[in-house]
């Protein structure tokens, strides 16, 4: 995966398959301790200890369509390759928390990428899931909550061109202000 946003697009699918109704994507950039943290947290079905232990094994998957499962393995590899760490915690019936820490200044830390498209396309396919994206930097933070957006839309379709462009523009403008992107 070339960007953080592609990892998120991928990892979030795990939460979708775990029947989560709330997924939180949190990116935290910290200049002072030079850390860049990605957290994906869901309230899905979780997994028992023996499956959790296998979750970053590339030759383990719960799918039937193929024999490899690379999503978490690739994220772990990227985090560790950028001098960081990777943890996954899960409680059956309560949810799962995936945390990848990168050294912010590390050359191999993937760039953020088009996280706005990740948020939008995930929501387009899973409108029943409450999807929150939060980005924190030393300068402040930005949060977008799909529930707030749908409440505001009052039935107007998210896929309506003007709405789509406005939502994406809003995310980009806020990230620009936080100097997350140029």
């Amino acid at each position: 995966m070339k960007t953080i946003s592609e990892h998120v697009l991928d990892i979030v699918q795990n939460s979708v398959r775990a029947k989560a109704t709330l997924i939180e994507i949190i990116v935290n950039e910290n200049k002072e301790n030079n850390l860049y943290t990605l957290v994906v947290k869901d309230n899905g079905c979780g997994m028992p200890e023996e499956i959790l232990r296998q979750s970053t094994n590339p030759f383990f998957t719960s799918r039937k369509t193929r024999k490899v499962g690379l999503g978490l393995s690739l994220l772990k590899q990227n985090a560790e390759g950028a001098n960081g760490s990777f943890t996954i915690d899960s409680v059956p019936g309560e949810g799962t928390l995936v945390k990848a820490v990168f050294q912010k200044s590390h050359l191999d830390r993937p760039p953020l990428g088009d996280i706005w498209n990740t948020w939008y396309y995930t929501l387009l396919s899973n409108p029943e899931i409450r999807l929150i994206y939060k980005h924190c930097t030393g300068a402040g933070s930005f949060e977008i909550d799909s529930k707030e957006i749908f409440d505001m839309l009052e039935g107007v379709s998210l896929s309506q061109k003007e709405v789509r462009e406005a939502v994406i523009e809003m995310i980009i403008n806020n990230l620009k202000e936080l100097e997350v992107i140029n």
Binding site: E148, M152, L153, V156, S157, E162, V163, E169, N173, E177
Partner: peptide, 25 residues
């Protein structure tokens, strides 16, 4: 003005809503 808040989004939505007939997908 730049779209930065949900209130700005709502303005766009209201404009759209008055223009389009909701698609009956």
């Amino acid at each position: 003005t730049k779209i930065k808040t949900v209130a700005d989004l709502k303005r766009i939505k209201d404009e759209v809503q008055s223009k389009i007939k909701l698609r009956e997908n």
